[in-house]
Design a protein around this nucleic acid. Structure first.
Lengths: 155, 155, 155, 155
DNA sequence: TTTT
DNA sequence: TTTT
């Protein structure tokens, strides 16, 4: 149905990633990511506005996040927008929007304790299995699976 | 601060745009946009999941939306994520996420009453004024202003 | 090394795809894709400039292209830029740039003989194998492999 | 005509920018940008493949490049693909592809002599004029013009 | 060589 | 609330 839902962010982690390991060994990582823009207000004053994004990573990307990403670091994130519905305690329908990442590149920056020089690109988990399914001649990139989560996990 | 906040969507309008004309002649349009993806669930059944995005357009783009966009039509939207904070009546902090578009292209589709064949690209308002400020030799594209809203409008 | 190489195109096929089936059953499809922009020249005349992109698709995407894409149709293509080097007959180093697609969505339009209403998103081949490698609980999207080509194929 | 031509790159400058100042004060900057990806070849060896992109910036972006960008630095570049035709000395039609940037963000990294911490986003020239054309209430972002070049400049 |  |  001619659908595209794509997000590209470069920003800084507001906190260390929180990682959960689900039954079956699936990892999920979450962290807030800040993007900011500057603009001049009516009076010509330079202002800054920060946007916070809830980033979610699954499987291999979550494990990379757990190992390497720290508060303050700069990352490139590619993914899609997902809005979850839930009911608050008054029974009112609420919405919570997050970015489900399927690609992530560390850009270095001033994270605490990170190696931080340069960056490395990561794409979803199950690389070996998926690559193996390609037979000979496939690149790792060709074999890399996307990092979407199962739809029926209790998360 | 090395920030990028970019969204690219192709989807269908869930409703006709709602357009407001603010004091000063600034137009703001809003509509819900559906993107959907299909996947196979555990049992191998094909499933569809629809994501709804709140699109906001300002100025020239809002006027284009008012004139040409209708429920059901397919559009390409480029913009940024913005999450607004507000307090609900219980005083709890709530968040509402929208996509502020700075580029929009109609892709045709089955909107009601639209011309709908092909599509046209639109970028932000104030084209004439901005282009005029370039003097000779500039392309229209060069002169097209972005479509961000003022930060201090009561919207 | 903090690298991103991403291209997003919406345009029309200049020709039907040319498809080759390599030994091993790997399919490769190629077609030219036109994007165009309009601008006003110095004299205020509306002008159009068309850009032609050489699109390359591998495996599953190539097969989809072979079956469904036709000259004139509108498609969304996501991929990366690749510039190939070769020597012309005088021994001069030449360059040829193409877009290696890893995601493609048909947008309908006036292709010859196509169904053309709406569009469908496709992502790379080997879906079944890759999905199978995920075990239960994975979505099709999660299991979809990327569509990069092997680096050592004679193409 | 439903056209989109968008490129997003993060890479490192292969050389310092070369800047020309045209008659009329318009600046043009060019530099090669490297993106690289790693993959495993048939034998399981990790390989790296580097792609070189010819980046072109106009006006304000060119001036920023001249002042701040140096060989080795990491930048985010957003723009469009443009392929220029020319005839070589044998009269054969040749093609040269470049990326015309309309948005650029420095990401720091190991440039020679740059300040390099963090990054700053820049968008096209003529900011003051374009912003001025908006009257009160407009953000700087709203007033920033795109950075496309005139189509009739001798470049 | 496409499309409007 | 869209679309296939």
């Amino acid at each position: 149905m001619a659908s595209v839902n794509k997000v590209i962010l470069i920003g800084n982690l507001g906190k260390d990633p929180e990682v959960r390991h689900l039954e079956g060994g699936v990892a999920v990582a979450r962290f807030p990511l800040a993007t900011s823009e500057t603009f001049k207000d009516k009076t010509g004053q330079r202002q800054e506005k920060t946007e916070w994004h809830n980033i979610v990573l699954w499987r291999g990307l979550a494990e990379v996040a757990e190992k390497y990403l720290r508060k303050g670091q700069s990352v490139f994130v590619e993914g899609k927008i997902r809005t979850n519905q839930y009911q608050d305690k008054e029974g009112v329908q609420r919405y919570s929007t997050e970015i489900v990442a399927d690609n992530m590149t560390m850009l270095g920056g001033r994270g605490e304790g990170g190696s931080s020089e340069g960056g490395t690109n990561y794409q979803g988990g199950n690389t070996a299995a998926a690559a193996g399914s390609f037979g000979g001649g496939s690149t790792a990139a060709a074999g890399v699976a996307q990092n979407d989560e199962p739809d029926d996990l209790p998360f």
